[in-house]
Nucleic acid binder design. Sequence first.
RNA 1: GGGAAAAUAACUCAGUGGAAGAGUGUCUGCCUGUUAAGCAGAAUGCCGGAUGUUCGAUCCAUCCUUUUCCCGCCA
Length: 508
Amino acid sequence: MAHTYIKELEKHDGHEVVLKGWLAQKRDSKAIVFLVLRDGTGFVQCIVDINTVGEEVFEMAKKLTQESSFTVTGTVRKDDKQFGGYEIQVTALTIYSLAVDYPITPKEHGTGFLMDNRHLWLRSKRQWAIMRVRNTIIYSIHKFFQERGFMQMDAPIFTGNASEGTTTLFETDFYGQPAYLSQSGQLYGEAMAFAQGLIYTFGPTFRAEQSKTRRHLSEFWMIEPEMAFYDLAMDMDLIEQFVQHVVGEVLDSCKIELKVLERDTKFLDRVKEPFIRMKYEVAVDHIQGLKAVDGKTSIQMLEDDLKNIQDEISSKQKDIEEREVKMASGALTKGEKNFNQNKIDQLKNDIKDLEEKATNIPQWLNSAKNFKRGEDFGGSDETVLTRMFGQPIMVYNWPREVKAFYMKEDETDLGYAKGVDLLAPEGYGEVVGGGERETDINKLIGKIEEHKLPMDVFEWYLDLRRYGNIPHSGFGLGLERLVAWICGLQHIRETIPFPRAFGGRLMP
RNA sequence: GGGAAAAUAACUCAGUGGAAGAGUGUCUGCCUGUUAAGCAGAAUGCCGGAUGUUCGAUCCAUCCUUUUCCCGCCA
């Protein structure tokens, strides 16, 4: 008999099915055992009742340990209290393999330990949900582009030129000559767009930046569409539709996953509204506190934030004190004590996070007040700006100096490059960077010289301007940053199955 | 590249210059429906490594190793 997947249980309501998977959780008593089975497509509770299955099967069920693999046969029953809406009344059970001393218990663990066990950690419910969302995002990206006539074309991973300086490139040996792992497929994307019109690349990207933060990986996946005959305005329209499509798909088809992640979708729901578009200079006004939104400048907003955080800290401290008094009274059962202790620990952690935020805000205030017009935004500037609006913001027309050499200069706004950054709300910052490409070959050559880049490795790129030059645009999106934002994750390492980051591990 | 903190049981952590602690998990028994809240009992440690101070160091000092967090750079 072919087995059924948990995701499809609703089609089998009231019928007998065979499920195969692993034990995520167990509770047992004298005559009944609750097994939570996971099979990759979901989680379902299986009830093993001694009166239904007999003593032999019952004993087997009792013997199962966390992450043991097994098969159950049983009847599907609707139960709205259940996580997926269904449960299984077991009639038979066979064991594939008993797991002994599975290291990841249902309780608290530190990140170091979890990262050491990343190969097992992926089985946990939260990680399961993140990977499902990641997959939905990937699928919806392909769907979005394919439905609009874009071709997926792949840029090479080995590249010969150290165009942007070797410090951020991984060097390897390519049959005796130095080669670098790709940092971006952008220039190749342009060549491919001239061949196929609308293209996108979707591949791994490598950056040897020595930055160890919650937003950086050394190896990550990037999507880079490139469109012939698109100007900056069309590029921004596409970015907006694209992000709306992806977020919409996740909201529609990952309800269970977002629930597991306890994701508050308040800000994601607002993504369907038109994005805010503003020129760099206007964004700077907002950051510096020269312009108010809803009657508040950035400075006032940060000051209010700080006050709110301090209030929250003191209310949590009060909560802790009350619980400590209750525990000291001695009138609690052991279970209630545990419950309160856990709550207190959680509150203490929350306070630690809040205190960190509270120390950050004065620094943000400082950096907002002292922001130098003409410079690129720092992480805090992005956060400040997006907090004012609470929805995605596209900042365009950047000072030419802070953007890459291939960005087109705006003829009506000299000194500014037609580049655009999409800033995600909730402090997630830049998730998309793009723009219209420079078409003037002399300006390009000038920029390459100005950046002191070797001309010879760009000859093929300049050919694109020599033969059938056209206006064209594109953008790049870091998949993991998008996953982190949509899932509401604290750290980018959870967005990819096996993260590779500076100072991090190569194993597992 | 700059800064901060940490290393004690399988896990999360407390603790003390003079015989190593809690909670969780695990194991054993009891409880017929639980979803991190039932009850009782048990096992578990070279207190990260090296050197020094000391009668005595898990605790103090120095160095090393490893990890976590923050800033800069970026997607």
